[in-house]
Structures are given as structure tokens and as C-alpha cells.
Simulated scan of single mutants.
Amino acid sequence: MEKSDANSKGFYLSIIFNVPAPQRFNVLTVLALWIWTWILRFFSLNNLDISQVLLTRVPHDIRPGYTLTQLHRSARNFAFKITRIIIPFHFITVFFFEYKNVTEGPLKNVVFVVYFLPLIQSMIITWFILKDCHIIRYCVKRCLLIEPSPRSLRNTYILLSDTLTSFAKPLIDFTLFSSLIFREPFTHFDLFVALFPVLIRLLQCLREYRLLHDTTLLFNALKYSCNLPILFCTWQSRVYEDSIDSEKLRHIQRWFMLLNSSYTFFWDVRMDWLLDSLSSLRSKSKSAVTFKRRIYHAAIIIDFVLRFWWSWTHLFQNLKFGTTNTDYLFFQGEMQYLEVIRRGLWVIFKLEAEYYIKFTSK
């Protein structure tokens, strides 16, 4: 009897805390909405009106753009609305996943529901975002036709596109699992979906270079192209999964990941955040920073730790002799949560740098 009670408690706890891989995409999307709300609140508390560097209405709309207060209120209300919709779906999804896992030979209808629920939620979230956020709908329609002028519109494009790249791994899990609705998973289609956000940013950089002839944009395009060999190695390791070359491919992939993490970390700090010195931060101007200096230093450290989180996991696993090799330190999917949090951190200092460009550097 006690054993049965313990199993029941474990079952209900897993319903509360366990997030299945395909459902993680929806949870991370809701998390991103709340992080964006917190970012706007953070700027409001620091008297930094980033509504001046973001286009909040579609071009040619004669109405004035949202103020920071209006933007924060709108984002908070939208996050509340999506959360209220997704929470019931989430618990139902987790319940059915647990039921499928503990039941031998589950009913076909249950399996179909398990595969279909995360897809329904993602469609609901996407529909509400495109319906309620006109500027996002505008940018999505023209994502490959990025407009470098005005700069506030470009910033909106960049924030959306770069945020999408942070969802590459959740998209792989989501697509791979959702394809089971059709009984057999689409072979390697998930990698194509993960490649899509990278290609968007890569093509945006090339288009901007064609318009502006700024060589910095080519180096930015090179940064995104560093993801291509990583995905290629993933594809090859699947094809030759049982081959002796599989471990060699993973080793090569880790070197590409190291290159990518190093390049992107440098670009975050030096190019996106415009920080050229650890001591003076922005050496060209004494009034070049708007936050306390320790906040910038903490952000650099956090960005470094999270950019290389995969390497800390790999190093730790190598120290655990005789244990099962996993891709996490604390819980499954932790890297995906940390990447969304890191992206939120990046957004703060990217917008702060844009504010510096527009006002302080004049």
C-alpha cells in the first residue's frame, strides 16, 4: 500500500515538473513572453525609453508608436492571456504523456492526442501573436526583405530573427515528435526546420550588405554560417549512427561548436553590445554606459558561461567515469531554457547599445 502511494505521489509530481520534449517548445515560448515583459519593466525602472529604438507600429501607420509604459502593459496583458490558455493544455499534455509512458500498449486515440496536443498549442500561440502583434506580422511577412532603414525597424527585425535562432534545438524536438502524427517521423526534416532560423539571419545579413556595402555584415553572416557544419555533423552522425565514424563526427562537431560559441560570444560583447574594454566598457565616451558597471561585467560573465554551457556539460561528463553520457547537468532540456534566458540578457544590452548609438554617442 505504501509503495502504491509512493508511486502515485511520484506520478503526480512528474505531471507538475516534467516537461516532455515537444511540449518544451511551447513552455519556452511562454517563458520568452514573460522575459520580454520583464525586460520592458527593467528598462522602465532604469528610465531607458527603448521605445525610441524599436518600431512598434507598422510603417506608414500615422498613429504614434507605443510608449514604453504602453509597450510594457501590452506585453504583460498578452503574456497573461497566452499563459491562461496554455496552462490547462500543458497539464493535460503532461498527464497524457505520463499515462502513455506507464501504460503498456496505450490506445491509439491516446497516442494520437499525445502527438497532437503540443502542435495545437503552438498553433494557438502563433495565431495570437500574429493576430495581436501587427509589427511582428509585418516583419514575418518580410523577414527576408529586411529593411535597414529606419534603424528602429531594423532593430525589430533583428530581435525577432535572432530570438528565433535561440529556438533551434526546441524546434528540432518539436518537429521530430510532431511528425509522429503521420506514424513515421519525417527523416531529417527536423534539421531543416532548425536550419530555417539560421538561414533567415544569414540571408538578411547578405541582403543588408548588398544594400549598405558594410563589410561588417559579411562577418556577421559568417557568424551564422558557423551553425551549418554543426547541423551537417548532426545529420551525418544520424546517417552513420552505428559506424565507427560516429564518434569521430561528434568530435569534429564539438570543434565547430567551440568555434561557434567563441565567435558568437565575441560578437555579443564587442559588436552587439558595443563593449570594447573591460575596464572602461566603452572607451570612446565617459558617459557611454547607462547601467552600473558591475551589471555589464556580470552580463559578460553570464553570457560566457551560457554560451559555453554545452562544453561545461561535456567536461563534467568526462569526469564522471562509468556513468551514462547525457547532454545536461541538472535536468533534461536545461540548455534550451538557459539559451532563452541568455537571449533575454542579450536583448537588454543590444537595445541599450542601440539607445547609446541614437542618443549618447551624438
Rank of each mutant, 00 (worst) to 15 (best):
P150S: 04
K81S: 11
L68H: 02
I92M: 09
A79W: 06
P150A: 03
C139P: 02
T165W: 02
L117D: 00
C143N: 09
I181W: 00
P185M: 02
R154S: 12
F167V: 04
Q70R: 08
Y99F: 11
K141C: 09
S149E: 15
K100L: 13
K81G: 02
V110M: 05
R137D: 08
I181T: 09
P118Y: 00
V111A: 10
T187L: 15
W127Q: 11
Y138L: 08
S179M: 00
G105F: 10
P170N: 01
I172A: 06
F112S: 07
R84F: 15
K131A: 13
L71N: 03
C133E: 15
L68S: 08
I146R: 06
R76K: 14
N101K: 13
F80Y: 14
T103F: 04
V140K: 01
P148E: 06
R151T: 09
L119F: 10
I87C: 06
R183D: 12
R73C: 12
T187N: 14
F116T: 08
T67P: 01
F112W: 12
F174W: 05
T175G: 05
R137P: 01
S166I: 00
T103N: 01
N155V: 01
S152K: 13
I124R: 05
I82E: 01
L176F: 14
S161A: 14
H134L: 14
K169F: 14
L117P: 07
Y157R: 01
T187A: 13
F174N: 03
T163P: 00
M123V: 15
P150W: 06
T83K: 02
I146G: 04
L107I: 11
P170F: 00
V114E: 05
I172S: 06
R63Q: 13
T175E: 05
Y66W: 12
L171E: 02
R151E: 12
L180Y: 11
Q121T: 12
D132T: 11
P150F: 04
F96R: 06
N155T: 08
I125F: 07
T156D: 03
I158F: 13
I87Q: 06
I146M: 01
T103E: 01
W127Y: 15
A79I: 05
S161W: 02
E98R: 12
N109I: 15
G105E: 13
L119V: 12
L144N: 04
S179Q: 03
K141P: 02
T93M: 08
R183G: 07
L107P: 07
A168Y: 05
L171A: 11
K100P: 05
E104F: 10
S122C: 09
H134G: 11
